[in-house]
Design a protein around this nucleic acid. Structure first.
Length: 490
RNA sequence: CGGGGUGUAGCGUAGCCCGGUUAUCGCGCCACGUUUGGGACGUGGAGGCCGCAGGUUCGAAUCCUGCCACCCCGACCA
């Protein structure tokens, strides 16, 4: 298979798809928009999982697991929640197959379920059904549970990682005695996500609140983190919802306060998905392929030997084995690619495609000089380094690359936030430059929808730390107290 | 779910309009040899229910019908 990629500037969409497939992250399964995540891609997801899980536990959360199938009736209990998901649910109607007369396998019509089961598009309903049984007293609160799971949403158009019919995620569901505590939790997780993306994945995000129109079904408030991709489109990378008492009321989850009164509990839910891998790819990668921040790279350093014969390889291997021990002591993940079946040039290109942050090449000349050639994936630069200094150099570079990738992405993002004051300007910037557009909005759903219809741009978020600035709505000219961020989004 | 398009070897494709020998080419794959500091070269070889099912015909990759999958544009969405 040719490993050459379509250029990013030529066809962004094609570049992205080829990159995901050729870097060995994932592929289309050929089954209704469902994705196969390959070992290399899954290893990155595992890094994401491990670090998030650690941070969840540090903030007092526990993991649990709830069923994949949810009785249909559970969905009808919270009206706006149903509305949000009804159109994209997979439904289980039968529980048995049989062999037909012609030998083919068919659904046994006799095995029709009395009540259909929904494959979870999200687990609020089934979890709240459990919470009703678990919560009686204020002493049972708070409950702060997270679930790692797969969910299914029957999307009409799918894209690898960004929108697949089945995806992996974590969903946190918490129950609290007071409104203040629940709001605090929603904001805590919002910040946790933002910090995680920025300091672990090197993806800068904008923190904000969703407008009523873009809110999660059943939520009173949705906090979002928005990232900017290299083609100027925004990507919602994580959300944290303040659910108020909606689900408690729908599922009748009450508790007795220390004053003996019956109250409904206050709730939050929050989640991030395998979409983060898509965000990672589209934030950092280039025409040579994937660029992985060292924190997420399954292989942080690859060592490629260069040799003409077995004696040379043996001599190189001796030196390399010592390096590997030293790297492993420092918890640096390293791979020695001593395959004899591929040439060095091929290997160089392959590890660039796969985004390995650092590459060491070592050959006969290096053995003579006591050096290695060290190449950085992020800058595509090479230098010769003394073997004696290698470990320090590599340790430092891994940190530097992590920081450099974040800075680069942050600069790009900041250069793509544009203030506009008229609708003409709005359209022009959206068309020619893309990115986030900070504009005044009159606060109505009608205007929001009209702008979307005219430009395809949506309000990504209302900034949390926005300065008050009087202005006029770009579309209607009505009074506006502050700007909001618009963008075309994935 | 509406509009448009595509499906030929692991991948990318020619052939289809206008039916007719053994289905084209490149990459990849296998063997051997020469190579090895940026995707090597030569020689030889293997690999196809031409997406699936049905129909028209003496004869179908090619024409017709249905289904499935994928891509693009809308609507929906993490």
């Amino acid at each position: 298979m040719s490993k050459k990629l379509t250029k990013r500037s030529e066809d962004y969409s094609k570049w992205y798809n080829e990159l995901v497939v050729k870097a060995d992250l994932a592929e289309n399964s050929g089954v209704r928009g469902m994705m196969v995540i390959k070992p290399y891609g899954y290893a990155i997801w595992e890094k994401v999982q491990a670090e998030l899980d650690k941070r969840f536990k540090e903030t007092g959360h526990e993991n649990a697991y709830f069923p994949l199938l949810i009785p249909k009736s559970y969905f009808t209990k919270e009206a706006s929640h149903v509305e949000g998901f009804a159109k994209e649910c997979a439904v289980v109607t039968h529980y048995r197959l049989k062999t037909a007369d012609d030998g083919s396998i068919i659904v046994d019509e006799k095995a029709k379920l009395e009540e259909e089961l929904i494959i979870r598009p999200t687990s609020e309903t089934i979890i709240w059904d459990s919470y009703r049984k678990w919560i009686q007293s204020y002493r049972d609160l708070p409950i702060k549970i997270n679930q790692w799971a797969n969910v299914m949403r029957w999307e009409m158009r799918t894209r690898l990682f960004l929108r697949t019919a089945e995806f992996l995620w974590q969903e946190g569901h918490t129950a609290h005695a007071t409104k203040e505590e629940a709001l605090e939790e929603a904001q805590l997780m919002h910040n946790l996500y933002a910090d995680f993306l920025q300091d672990f994945m090197a993806i800068p995000v904008i923190k904000g609140e969703k407008t009523e129109n873009e809110r999660f079904g059943g939520a009173l408030n949705t906090f979002t983190i928005e990232a900017l991709m290299q083609d100027g489109k925004a990507l919602q990378a994580g959300t944290s919802h303040f659910l108020g008492q909606n689900f408690a009321k729908a599922f009748d989850v009450k508790f007795t306060t220390n004053e003996g009164k019956q109250n409904y509990v206050w709730a939050t839910s929050w989640g991030v998905t395998t979409r983060l891998i898509g965000a990672l790819v589209m934030t950092h990668s280039d025409d040579q392929g994937l660029v992985l921040p060292p924190n997420l790279a399954p292989i942080q350093v690859v060592i490629v030997p260069i040799y003409r014969n077995d004696e040379q390889l043996d001599a190189i291997t001796k030196v390399v084995n010592k390096m590997i021990i030293a790297f492993k002591e420092k918890n640096i993940s390293v791979k020695f690619d001593n395959r004899t079946t591929y040439k060095p040039g091929f290997k160089f290109a392959e590890y660039e495609l796969k985004g390995v942050p650092l590459r060491i090449a070592i050959g006969p000349k290096d053995l003579e000089n006591g050096t290695v050639e060290l190449a950085r994936r992020d800058t595509l630069t090479k230098e010769f380094v003394e073997q004696d200094n290698l470990l320090t150099k590599v340790s430092n570079l891994l940190v530097e690359i992590q920081n450099n990738l974040y800075k680069k992405a942050l600069n790009f993002r900041n250069e793509h936030i544009t203030k506009v004051n008229s609708f003409e300007e709005f359209k022009r910037v959206l068309e020619n430059k893309g990115g986030f557009i900070a504009a005044h909005w009159d606060g109505t759903i009608a205007t929001e929808k009209e702008i979307k219809k005219l430009t395809k741009a949506t309000i990504r978020c209302i900034l949390l730390d926005t300065e008050n600035e009087e202005g006029k709505c770009v579309l209607t000219g009505a009074v506006s107290k502050s700007r909001v961020l618009f963008a075309k989004a994935y």
